[in-house]
């Protein structure tokens, strides 16, 4: 089944929760979904006989870097507002079709519903996106830091406006 056909099925079933079908200039197209409905959409994709997306192949958090850029005196910069995105690559091992879904959330309130109940694979990837980008996954069973130290308070390193903290546990960080 092609991406376009799947989009039509989803649009019919979920209406406004399916925001748009984005055709990329380069690379791949994707379907944009509402962040608070993504679990229902994924559950449908997982169970429906025509779709049967039984495998999540990749899961990425992205900082869109689209807020208002404010340059500070020391040359560093901050983004005011803007969005974070989560991109899901899913595949059906039975029907052999692939699909890309994306959600985007405001940086001020980065809440996305977890899909760990559907694909256990998402568990560690969601922890990673939480750890490095600060995306909050609702209903996640175990949302802890994963790659950074558990007591890290220096912010989210993969955000575009991340700045190293001055000290970590009494050690000077910038060198």
């Amino acid at each position: 089944m092609t991406e376009k056909e799947i989009f039509e099925i989803l649009k019919e079933k979920f209406g406004d929760s399916i925001i748009e079908f984005v055709e990329a200039q380069a690379g791949e197209n994707y379907i944009k979904v509402s962040p608070l409905e993504i679990d229902k959409v994924c559950a449908f994709l997982f169970t429906d006989d025509r779709l049967l997306f039984d495998s999540l192949i990749n899961f990425s958090g992205v900082d869109d870097a689209n807020g208002e850029k404010k340059v500070n005196e020391d040359g560093s910069f901050d983004f005011i507002g803007g969005t974070l995105s989560v991109v899901y690559h899913i595949e059906s091992l039975k029907h052999l079709h692939k699909l890309t879904l994306a959600v985007s959330v405001e940086k001020d309130k980065p809440d996305v519903v977890s899909v760990t109940d559907i694909w256990a694979h998402a568990n560690w990837h969601e922890r990673e996106a939480f750890d490095l980008l600060g995306i909050n996954f609702l209903n996640h069973p175990d949302l802890r830091r994963i790659l950074m130290p558990y007591d890290w308070e220096g912010g989210f390193p993969l955000r575009k406006d991340y700045k190293d903290p001055e000290f970590y546990r009494g050690m000077k960080v910038p060198y």
Partner: peptide, 25 residues
């Protein structure tokens, strides 16, 4: 200097599926 877009490329690494998701601006 790729155009704006995103791509997921994958290969069969000795340990399994190695994928790179690249977003270009």
């Amino acid at each position: 200097k790729p155009p704006v877009g995103q791509v997921y490329g994958r290969v069969e690494n000795p340990r399994g599926e190695l994928g790179y998701f690249i977003v270009s601006d």
